[in-house]
Structures are given as structure tokens and as C-alpha cells.
């Protein structure tokens, strides 16, 4: 299997481990990753400019399409944004088919022109996969279970789904948005034991870390209380931004006191494979 690897902006500097372990897993599953000159997924620009955010995504999607590859990303925000853009694009298309709404057709034309400057074109056929859905659906959880070589000790793990992949379901189609399951199931096949806690679908606070740090950290620290209550050993993430938030130094210190380790799913799986 061959996929275009979309690491997202943050992995290279902030979370090298995620990239390394991700690649290692894919190697063990004999998935070939192709690195294309992708740019920002467009998610940060969503707060400032609709056109910029759309074009950033479209350029990535068109680039992958040029090589006839589907995109896989370890980051939930990138996943959500690319899904969002691809859906928006299709809706732009639909509106044109239905009624000649001038503004939207102009917008679509503008994106097409800009893509054409780089000899790109997007027909809407790039599929976007997140690490978790890829493992669960494409590799298959039963298949993956067979490939586990070292069963890990039965430690307790709580999971943190990322918001942007989970919601809105109508855009991302990730998993049941109210009671997601796939992360827990993936954890369980490694031998670790996923336990319930109240925060698995709640935001980590990272999006407002820069603008209102205290509020962001309050949200983060509430996770620790919940994790202690669930008697967890690990808080497991599968999103670059969530893990970056958990890597916040003050939080790390608190975690150490309670013997809780925020950890990346890829590192867990890499050890088990």
C-alpha cells in the first residue's frame, strides 16, 4: 500500500517522536509513505480567512491527487481540516450544479485558477485517512491484532480523542461522536487496558493556548484530575496538538507526581508490534 504522508506543521519541531514512531509503525505494516511538498493544512487560517484556509487544503489535496495517492495524517486537526475543505469544495460544486449562484462559482473558479498556476487540478477524489481510522478500517483491527508481537503489560490507559476529527460527525465521519470506540479497541489489542474517564471527547485546550493561556491550562489540568480518578497510568493521544498540549512543562511535572504519563498512541503500538 502506498500513501502520501501528511505530517502537518508541528511534528518536525515540536513532536519529532510522533513522526518517528509513526513512520516506524507504517514500515512494520509495510505501508509505503511518500513525502510530498505539502504545505499547511489550512486549519490555522480558518480563524482568519476562509479563502486562504480553503486554498491551503485544496493545494495539498490536489498535490496528492497528482500522484494518485490518498493522504494519511497522524494529526486530528489536519484530518478535520482536510475533510472540511473537501466537503466545502464539493458543496461549492453542488451549488453551481443546482442554481447559478454567482459568488460561489466565482470562488470555485478562483481556486481552480490558482491551482492551475502550479499545474494542479483537483477532482475531489483524494481520500483522507487518519492514523486511527486507517488502522481500524483499512488495516483492520483483527488483522492488526494478529501482528502484535509483544503484548504489553496490563496498564490502565485513558484515551483522548481529538475534537477536530471527532466532530462535526457530518463532516469528518470519524466515529460515533458521542460514544467513540475505535481508540479504546486499538489500545486493548496491544495488551494495555483502556479504562473509562469523563474527558475522552473533551477538548485539550490547545487552540487557545496562545491567546488565553490561563484558561487553556485550566482545561488541561482538569484532565489530570479526571485521569487520577480513573486511576490511569497513561493518557494516550493520537493527535499532534493534543500531545503538544500535554507536553506543557507544568503539566508534565504534575503528571509525574501522580505517576501518569501522557503518551502517544504510535509509541505504544510501535512497542507492541
Amino acid at each position: 500500500m502506498k500513501l502520501a504522508y501528511f505530517p502537518g506543521c508541528k511534528i518536525d519541531f515540536y513532536l519529532k517522536d510522533y513522526g518517528i514512531s509513526f513512520k516506524s509503525i507504517m514500515k512494520k505494516l509495510s505501508v509505503e509513505l511518500v513525502e510530498l511538498p505539502f504545505n499547511c493544512c489550512g486549519y490555522p487560517a480558518r480563524n482568519t480567512d476562509y479563502e486562504v484556509c480553503m486554498f491551503s487544503s485544496l493545494r495539498n489535496l490536489a498535490l496528492a491527487r497528482k500522484y494518485k495517492l490518498d493522504i494519511i495524517t497522524p494529526c486530528m486537526c489536519c484530518y478535520g481540516q482536510l475533510q472540511y475543505a473537501s466537503l466545502q469544495w464539493k458543496q461549492l460544486g453542488r451549488q453551481i450544479e443546482n442554481s447559478a449562484k454567482k459568488q460561489t462559482s466565482e470562488l470555485k473558479q478562483k481556486f481552480n485558477d490558482l491551482l492551475a498556476q502550479e499545474n494542479l487540478f483537483w477532482d475531489g477524489k483524494t481520500e483522507i485517512k487518519h492514523l486511527l481510522t486507517f488502522l481500524y478500517n483499512d488495516i483492520g483491527i483483527l488483522n492488526l491484532k494478529k501482528k502484535i508481537k509483544n503484548r504489553l503489560p496490563e496498564k490502565k490507559v485513558v484515551t483522548q480523542y481529538g475534537c477536530h476529527a471527532l466532530r462535526p460527525f457530518t463532516v469528518t465521519g470519524f466515529d460515533n461522536p458521542h460514544a467513540p470506540q475505535i481508540f479504546e479497541e486499538l489500545i486493548n489489542i496491544t495488551g494495555l487496558k483502556s479504562v473509562e474517564w469523563s474527558k475522552n471527547t473533551e477538548c485539550c485546550g490547545n487552540p487557545i493556548l496562545e491567546n488565553s493561556k490561563t484558561l487553556s491550562l485550566k482545561i488541561l489540568n482538569s484532565k489530570l484530575d479526571a485521569a487520577i480518578k480513573a486511576k490511569a497510568d497513561y493518557i494516550c493521544t493520537a493527535c499532534t496538538h493534543c500531545q503538544m498540549q500535554y507536553n506543557e512543562l507544568s503539566f508534565q511535572k504534575e503528571c509525574k507526581k501522580h505517576n501518569i504519563t501522557p503518551t502517544l498512541f504510535t509509541q505504544i503500538l510501535d512497542n507492541a508490534l
Binding site: 460527525f169 457530518t170 460515533n176 461522536p177 458521542h178 460514544a179 467513540p180 470506540q181
Partner: peptide, 12 residues
């Protein structure tokens, strides 16, 4: 229901 593997098409 999620544990019983009911597939949920939210807002469909």
C-alpha cells in the same frame, strides 16, 4: 449501544 456495535449515522 456503541459497545454493542450499533452503527450510528449522526444527523443523517
Amino acid at each position: 449501544l456503541a459497545k454493542n456495535r450499533v452503527q450510528f449515522l449522526s444527523q443523517a
